[in-house]
Design a protein around this nucleic acid. Structure first.
Lengths: 349, 349
DNA sequence: CTGAAAGCGCTAACAT
DNA sequence: ATGTTAGCGCTTTCAG
């Protein structure tokens, strides 16, 4: 950060006042065109760069927004962030990205960090149900616009961009029921690897699962609902291995997310169990790896680009008009049926 | 961004001068303990938050550093960034992250953006060979410390943290030669999917490949070296499919990176070719998917955490002492041999 | 059209 | 130990 030229330097070099320089630089109408040109030229020549801190101090704007995500090694949030950046950089905003490794404590620290940086708004996908709810509210009350995306806090009134997890879980499980019935199993036993209780979505996706079973006249058997402690491939592997040990082999599996489903597939394949002939597997939140595993994993894809862009625009609106109403936008998902659930899809892979 | 309390407000509330408040807040020794306590209490009560812009304006520091990466959907850079953030947040810095989608033009814009934000330093992994070299140099000359990580620009003198791509490519290919010879092929034909010419590393990894062949008395056959246009799974699939069509089936394949290798595996498997019995496959820059594909992909893992931390500390050093010498740290890789290259590894999967 | 002056919130001499 | 003053770089009245 070398010491830069200031408007004072330009003023002195041109023998005019710094107010005029400031006006010329701001392209105001009340400056003689020649003066304007002279200033612009000199500014160029002297490599003038406005000092954003002096500007912010006056304008009371930072032109920075903050993003808080639970993780970003899974490409899911990375893709959303790319869109967010695209929107905000177009509007001259900087984007401060923080991630909290699924820790509510770090999430809180990140929010504080952003608050201290005087961000003009925050986009957040929450880590744990409830833990920082009061703090989200405090931020909003203190005048920082907040928009939730993907994982929202039910207890806070703010802009939200989500997909209907309940609905798409329902569809996913309905597909599993149908496909197993078409394979000649009228009463398929469908297992669910449930997400951790700290994540709101776990309950939602479970409800979709349970209601789909009920709709099709299948019992909701609690021994087929297994609570996972984390949502990684390793956990999926571990949990499914335990099931296999106990002789608990279902006809289909609906995983809370792709990594869990893929881990389970690994365990099943290792145990000599045929996918999808013996067990149909379905993930959620389609990942890169869904197309790598064999057979390819059926999953619910989410419109990540749209989610990022919608959330970004919503925040932008809130920043420009703080009294704008809080809206909740529900985006559609997309059920991708592949070989892991439906034998008919195997040939095309 | 609500209008916050200022030190002036605190001073007025306490009937003292704002300098004293400032001193008390800065925890200076020359303030009466009671006064200090009173100020701190009042600050707390009034929800005082220092205005960073006023502070920066005086201190001439932004406490922001910028990161520029070519992409971050592949978890590779995400992991490095997490470490970078860890180091800098501990030191009270903010980290501005930008990604350029492998576009040199966007990279340049990002650098300008960071420069305008008056970042105190930049960590960069370059997108394209040569394209912005002059600009990197300009930034350094203008006093912005710059540290390259992973992909460095050979033409610029600056801190660098890399792995020895030549060496580890050499090892990777040597392994392929050995494993094929142990399988009874004295003169294995080893193919290389080369990275795009715009990436410096492409040439390095190719040299490692070629030299390993030479060392073991194998010819470097240019028909076995295929230049890829991008480095995605789809490209790997496309290129290998073309090879198969042409009846060009090697005994082993060394991919520029994991996605290319995985795409190739997909094509080979689809073509009914046995991995590793007929073709041994080796990737580079170990990815998540290496453990998902079957058989699991042999690859060279890079110490991402260490790379992030080392680069961050190097930049920190440069910021604190601009005259510090430019060092280049070469980190060790790790060759992970798995079932995609070595049949003996298949059982343990 | 332009200059002088005030002030954004804060820190740092310089006084006392 | 505290108050006074000046000033960081910029914008914005207010005069002319």
């Amino acid at each position: 950060m070398a010491q830069n030229t200031t408007i004072k330097d330009i003023a002195r070099a041109l023998g005019i006042s710094k107010s005029t320089v400031s006006r010329a630089l701001a392209d105001r109408f009340d400056v003689k065109p020649e003066t304007k040109r002279a200033v612009l030229e000199m500014a160029e020549k002297m490599h003038y760069r406005p000092n954003p801190f002096a500007q912010n101090l006056i304008k009371r704007r930072t032109k920075i927004i903050g993003v808080v995500v639970p993780e970003f090694v899974n490409s899911f949030f990375s893709r959303i962030i790319i869109q967010i950046q695209k929107v905000f950089e177009q509007e001259g905003f900087h984007v401060l990205i923080t991630q909290c490794n699924e820790s509510a404590e770090v999430e809180r620290r990140n929010l504080q960090l952003l608050e201290e940086s005087m961000v003009e708004g925050i986009l957040i996908s929450v880590t744990e149900k409830g833990r920082n709810t009061a703090y989200y509210q405090e931020l909003i009350d203190n005048g920082t616009p907040l928009v939730f995306f993907n994982r929202a806090s039910a207890d806070v009134s703010a802009g939200k961009v989500v997909i209907d997890d309940y609905k798409w879980s329902f569809f996913a499980v309905e597909h599993l029921v149908n496909v197993r019935r078409e394979m000649g199993q009228p009463m398929p036993r469908i297992m669910h690897f449930q997400g951790p209780s700290e994540i709101d979505l776990s309950a939602l996706r479970y409800r979709g699962y349970a209601d789909a079973l009920r709709k099709h006249g299948l019992p909701v058997d609690s021994s087929l609902v297994i609570r996972c402690e984390s949502i990684t491939r390793d956990e999926g592997l571990r949990v499914m291995n335990r099931c296999i040990e106990q002789g608990l082999i279902p006809d289909a599996l609906f995983g809370f997310n792709d990594p869990l489903a893929i881990g389970a597939m690994k365990a099943l394949k290792h145990g000599g169990i045929q996918i999808p002939q013996q067990v149909s597997v379905m993930g959620f939140t389609e990942s890169q790896s869904a197309l790598v595993i064999e057979p390819m994993l059926s999953s619910v894809a989410q419109p990540l680009d749209k989610m990022g862009e919608t959330a970004a625009r919503m925040l932008l609106e809130k920043i420009e008009n703080p009294s704008a109403a809080d809206r909740t936008v529900v985006l559609e998902g997309l059920l991708h049926v592949r070989g892991s659930s439906d034998p008919r899809m195997l040939e095309s892979e």
